[in-house]
Design a protein around this nucleic acid. Structure first.
Length: 93
DNA sequence: GAACTGACTGTAA
DNA sequence: ATTACAGCCAGTT
């Protein structure tokens, strides 16, 4: 689950979907997150695209917000990408 | 039910 | 490194 992503690490949509037993539903994962109210306090910002790249255009607030929060957790965000080291495939959960 | 659409991904030019 | 494109699947139109 997204909430299982350890602080200071990020994962990918595909990985999340797989972990949920839904291979090939990467998009659905993103959709789910989008619909999920923040009251659920899900660390949606710890979910990025494959290779650790942020899916939103860098001009959007979403992108800024995500990058900002990730950096706040110690994740290195550079040019709309997170350090590959910070990415966890979520396979261990 | 066809046609779009999208918080995706991998391959190719 | 950037851009294009084709699979992908579920929800909308």
């Amino acid at each position: 689950m997204v909430g299982a992503i350890p602080r200071g690490s990020v994962s990918t949509y595909g990985a999340v979907a797989r972990a949920a037993g839904l291979p090939g539903r990467a998009r659905m994962a993103g959709r789910a997150l989008r619909e999920s109210p923040k009251e659920m306090k899900l660390p949606w910002h710890r979910v990025v695209g494959a290779g650790g790249k942020i899916v939103f255009p860098r001009t959007t607030v979403n992108h800024r917000e995500q990058a900002r929060r990730l950096r706040a957790e110690g994740v290195v965000v550079k040019a709309g990408r997170v350090s590959r080291e910070a990415i966890v495939d979520l396979e261990q959960f």
